[in-house]
Design a protein around this nucleic acid. Structure first.
Length: 499
RNA sequence: GCGCCUCUAGCUCAAUCGGCAGAGCAACUGACUCUUAAUCAGUGGGUUCCGGGUUCGAUUCCCGGGGGGCGCACCA
């Protein structure tokens, strides 16, 4: 496979046959006085506009309407004196063009047959007609190459291999409707979410991706180095600690949609860089944020699909309607395991239960056992959207203690079809307790936990200026696209990382 | 990070118990003024991922490396 660009002086005889032939056609085109890549074309209509204008003409009609349009040649059917081509717009819309010897002349038609390949961008001007078979067509009186294609398109009658699709997404977008559709869906989901936020007077901000201390989540970071400051920097694992600074500064309703980076495993549901939404609302709490999250997702489904019963890839229907269930982590775990588990349950009991279930958990924290056991017993059964409420304290260092239940924090995770979709907190705003929580994390790090949080003095200083009581939420955008489409994460990201 | 599987023409895939590497589409030459994956006749195109080993002979078997997939681990 020739993976390098052709510009680097590859010898012609080393090139694959089809590429050499197309390069030669490009030369011939230029020698004939035409352009292979003209700077502008006098287009009067898009393919979609012509199709919209003539939705149902009779067979063999000449409209008298002259148009000039361009598109990529997807199919060619050349006969002796009458040639057919199917042009495709970026939208995926297709229209047939016809070139007859009568209209364009003999030498012009010969040039067309000689120089125009599948995949080329072609410009034609002519009359809108329907063919004798009734196909809406442009009967050309002139044509031009709009852009010469040097590499052949893949054949359109087999599905592309998974690897080829990801490495050549631009080709995938040309040949596969669903690939284009997913890009559209993603854009519409973003639009919908921004509208939901705007309607609630939220302000969108952008906070640093390069950070001197990474924080806001438990994960291993990517490291880099600043030459100017001669210092180690981290790509952010979360924007949380900066968005909270914004709330301290009086940006009372704030959100950010941007990339996070985590130096961890990649699989069907994880990508090293992924799009994250985080939102904070002063004078809100985790209930406020649960409602917001439900609205964000339900509005997106309605705006994009017009329904809350979303059809997924394999035809499965995902029902996102109604008020979503809320269950307690400790209660649902106790119920599913048949063992009463509370924040006071001795860790030895949890260890015994984990052993019995064949779980290998090697972690000093009580809460880690609770979460692992909960995932084991409960998680897979959560197909309907469900908020799992009230998490252990020791695994949630940025969340405030529950207002009435001892030993837990006001945190929920939203699960949809067994996947963690979003998380929400009543934020910890007490700088004294926050410092204590950070100190606990530092101890964990010293004990060898590579994902423990760092103590961030600048963030604590901000809290010391007074952060109002607030709710916060975070949601993986790629995950949301997966939830709404049933696709894997690499299909929801246009250009996922490939080695 | 560990285990299993996989890599053949531009694309999608065959084949070889180790013996001239094939098809469809695409390409090339020719025919065709209503085609729809046009059709018909003919032709060319391969570092079988890379390096080494075994062998008279390796695309096939063995070893090492690389890319990809799946499972496990970690995480969202």
């Amino acid at each position: 496979m020739t993976d390098e660009s052709l510009v680097n002086g590859e010898e012609e005889q080393d090139l694959p046959e089809q590429i050499a032939i197309r390069l030669a056609k490009r030369e011939r085109l230029i020698e004939s006085g035409a352009e292979a890549y003209p700077v502008s074309l006098s287009i009067t209509h898009t393919i979609d506009e012509v199709k919209a204008k003539y939705p149902d003409l009779e067979i063999d009609v000449a409209t008298g309407d002259k148009v000039a349009l361009a598109g990529r040649v997807m199919f060619q059917r050349n006969t002796g004196k009458l040639c057919f081509a199917t042009l495709q717009a970026g939208s995926g819309a297709r229209i047939q063009v016809m070139l007859s010897m009568d209209k364009v002349g003999e030498s012009n038609l010969e040039h067309y047959k000689e120089l125009v390949d599948l995949g080329d961008h072609l410009f034609v001007s002519g009359e809108v007609i329907t063919s004798k078979r009734g196909e809406l067509s442009v009967l050309a009186d002139s044509w031009k190459i709009a852009a010469k294609t040097i590499r052949p398109l893949p054949n359109l009658h087999n599905e592309l291999g998974e690897e080829y699709r990801v490495r050549h997404r631009y080709v995938d977008l040309i040949v596969r409707d669903r690939a284009r559709e997913v890009v559209q869906i993603r854009a519409k989901v973003m639009q919908s979410m921004r509208k939901t936020f705007t309607d609630r007077t939220y302000i969108e901000v952008e906070t640093p991706m390069l950070q001197t201390i990474h924080g806001g989540a438990s994960a291993r970071p990517f490291k880099t180095h600043s030459n100017a400051f001669d210092t180690e920097l981290f790509l952010r694992i979360a924007p949380e600690l900066f968005l909270k600074r914004a709330v301290v500064g009086g940006i009372d309703r704030v959100y950010e949609i941007n990339r996070n980076f985590r130096n961890e495993g990649a699989d069907r549901t994880h990508s090293p860089e992924f799009a994250m939404l985080e939102a904070y609302e002063a004078y809100g709490d985790y209930n406020t944020m649960a409602k917001l999250t439900q609205d964000l997702i339900q509005n997106a489904a309605m705006d994009v699909f017009g329904t809350l019963k979303v059809e997924l890839e394999e035809g499965e229907i995902s029902d996102l309607s109604g008020e979503w269930d809320r269950i307690s982590m400790f209660e649902s775990l106790s119920q599913a395991s048949g063992v009463e588990i509370t924040p006071e349950t001795d860790i030895s009991v949890l260890k015994k239960l984990a052993d019995k279930e064949g779980l290998e958990i090697d972690h000093p924290l009580h809460g880690k056992y609770v979460e692992e056991l909960w995932e084991h017993f409960v998680k897979a059964n959560l197909q309907k959207p469900t908020f799992v409420m009230d998490f252990p304290v020791d695994t949630s260092p940025l969340v405030r203690n529950h207002r009435s239940k001892p030993g837990v924090v006001e945190k929920w995770d939203l699960y949809i079809r067994g996947y963690e979709q979003a998380t929400g907190y009543s934020e910890l705003v007490d700088p004294v307790i926050q410092r204590e929580r950070f100190v606990e994390q530092v101890k964990l790090a010293a004990a060898g936990d590579p994902e423990a949080m760092k103590l961030d003095e600048e963030f604590l200083k901000a809290l010391e200026f007074g952060m109002p009581p607030s709710g916060g939420m975070g949601m993986g955008i790629d995950r949301l696209l997966m939830t709404l489409t049933g696709l894997g994460i690499r299909e929801t990201i246009m250009f996922p990382l490939v080695k």
